[in-house]
Each structure stands twice: as structure tokens, then as C-alpha cells.
Computed example of a mutant assay.
Amino acid sequence: MSEETVETQEQELDRMRRRRRIRLAAGLTAGAAVVAGGLFWLSGGLQAWLHDRALDSACDGTLAADPVRELVGGAEVTAEVRTGRSFWQCRVSEADEEYEEDGRIDVRVTVSDARDHFATVDATRTDAPLGHGWTGGFAFDPDREDRGEASATVLLDCGGTRGGGVVAEVSARIDRADFGHPEARTELTAVLTRTATAYARQQEGCEVTEGEPVRKVATSVNAWDYEPFASVSGSCAGIVDPRTAARWGVRTAVETAPGPKPVEGCTLGGLRGAPLYTFTASYGPALERSTRDLLDDVTDQRAGDAPDGRYVLWAECRGAVDRAAYVVEPVGGERDRTTDLALDHAGLRTALSAFADRSAKAHDCTVTVD
């Protein structure tokens, strides 16, 4: 046998050994995958995966699953739809209510037809505006101990016809969350806006007007969050001129950033933030029927100056808002004053008109003059 033939045979044997090693390695890899898959299934990983995937189609396919995942931080949750006489609700809670390791999780998005008699909005003038083209507010008090609780509200139009639209709210109690962090507030806002928009689009005849993704939202203001009146730039800007403010004893103000919300407001105060006058704008479902009737009575009593200095203006609006009320009220009213001469009635009416005009413009409403 020649040396060339021997060398060829040895090369062929070497190739065969390498193929066997490759096959063996491939077999071991496949076996390891089967074992790993079994361990994944036995450890509950498959069940967790199924829970997670179920969020994508939860609540009739309307739930904004991705921001929910961010908020709950990997905890297993379930979602269900609840309906009542005048509302639709998507509720997210812990998959196992008896399992406390992941803490308390309760997130609810509630949607109602804005034209419904029972539709209401749990909002205040201290809420931070959502901005980015949304009519909505975010409520979180950074000074409260429970930092895992927050809520937000949004009004959605369905094509611009008067009264046509939905009002939606989200409330959250998540022990592991901290809504003092901007990221958590952004995620909860996304849960609200995306879920409410998806629901509205499923309703016949609702061509919902959608804002942009909310990239940053502030927190609520409190009575002690006052600033010098001379530096106002938000909801208190332009209501009272400096000369009138000095005559009224106004030195401070509590305001939110500018932006349309269901309830807007401004508080003008004296030294160290002591409140003197409050201005409030309430839109659509934020104006409860009982309050609306009461304000109608105040409006009807137009003869002369109001003894308590409380004045009301109204606006006609489109979409989910329908109607809005604007109120100015001295803090304490006549109870804290020995004479109505202490009130600048003409000045109060002028200030209310300025407040109403600016707020109505932001909501595409028209202040009515009877």
C-alpha cells in the first residue's frame, strides 16, 4: 500500500470521527433542551407564560397590556370585565389573591358614556394635566405615605357632536409601585389612554379623537405648594392684574400647569399661602347634576351683587364635554366677612370672565352670555 493511499484513509477516518462528535453534541443539545423545557413546565414557568400572554387579549382585547406588565413588575395577574347599568370596567388583580409575596395589585379602568345620566368624574382642580392633546388629569399626592396609589381621568370625543364621547378613569393600588417616580405615572397614564381609546373605537359611531403618547406627567398640588403671585404661569396666569391683586391682598397662588382637564382651578392667597379666592372650571361629567342645579340657581340670582361674592359663568361645548361651569368664590364667603363692602364684586366678575375665557378656549368651548 502506497504512502499516498494510507494518508487518504487516515483523512477519511478523521472526518468520520468529527461527524460522530458533531452528532453526539447535537444529540446532547437537543436532550438538554427537552430537559430544560420539562423543568420550565414543572417549575410553573409555562403557567406564568400563559398568564402573561393572556393579557394581550384581556378585557375584550382592549387592555393596554405592555404598561400593565411594567407596573406589576413581573407578578402574575388576571384581568376581567365588569359591567353595570352605566359603566364598563376592566379590572387587573393578582392571579392568586391568597399569595401575598407580590403585594397588593388592583388596577381598574372604568369607562362610561359621557351622555349617561350617571356618568361622573372623580377629579379635582389640583390634578396635574396630562397634556399631549388629552383632556385629562393625574391625581397623586407626593406627600402621602402610600405611594402605590394613584388615579387619572380622561375625556374622549367621538367625532365632535355635542355630548358624544366617553369618560374614563383609572385607579391603581400597587404595593410594589411608587407613583412618585415619573416612569410609573407615565405607565399608568398609558394604561388609561390606550385602554379607553381601544374601548371607544369598539363602540358604534365613535371615531375617537386621540392625543399623543404621554411622555411625562406631573403630580397633584397641595395648599402648601404656593408660589409668589408675581411668578404665576399656569392656571392662575392672567386672571387678576397686579393692581387688583394688591388691592385684594393677594400675595401667593396655588396653580397647576396649563392644559385642559375635566376640572381646572386656581387659588389666590395672601401671605404664607392663606387662601382668599378660588376659581374652578368643571367640564361635562365632572359637573355633577346636583352641583349643576345649584349653580343654575346661583346664575338665576343675577340682580345686584352676590352677598357672598360667588359668581358663575357657563359655556357650551362639543364632544364629551357638552357644558361647562366656571365659578369664583371667596374662601369662607360671607361667614368670614363683616360687610360685603370688603368684596370687589366688579373685580370678581372681571376676573371670572378672564378665567373662563382662557379655559374655554383650551377646550374649544364658547362662554355664553345671557
Rank of each mutant, 00 (worst) to 15 (best):
P129M: 06
R247I: 11
A351D: 03
P129G: 03
T368N: 08
G269H: 00
D344E: 15
L13S: 13
C365H: 04
F355I: 04
A32F: 08
E210D: 09
A320F: 03
R349C: 09
G270N: 04
R147T: 14
A139Q: 10
L46T: 07
R17T: 14
A281H: 01
T126Q: 12
E97L: 13
D357I: 11
T267C: 13
D364Q: 11
R201E: 15
A168L: 09
V217E: 01
Q203T: 11
E3T: 14
V298H: 05
I174F: 03
A36Y: 02
C158R: 00
E101W: 12
R20L: 13
R19Y: 08
V250F: 03
V327A: 01
E145Q: 08
G164S: 14
E70S: 09
A190H: 02
T124C: 08
S171C: 09
V217L: 05
D297L: 07
E255M: 03
T124P: 01
A351T: 03
A139P: 02
A320G: 15
L352V: 00
L50N: 07
Y283W: 11
V77G: 14
G332Q: 01
A75L: 11
R53W: 09
W134S: 02
A32Q: 04
E10N: 15
W248K: 00
G265N: 03
T197R: 10
A253H: 00
Q47N: 12
A119D: 05
V107S: 07
R337T: 07
D113T: 04
A198S: 13
A306D: 10
A32K: 03
L192K: 05
T62W: 06
A190C: 06
A79P: 06
E94N: 15
A351L: 02
W49C: 09
T29V: 13
E145T: 12
R243G: 15
G163K: 00
R144Y: 07
R176E: 11
R85G: 12
V328E: 00
W88Q: 09
R115N: 10
G133N: 05
A356T: 06
P182Y: 09
L287C: 06
D297P: 10
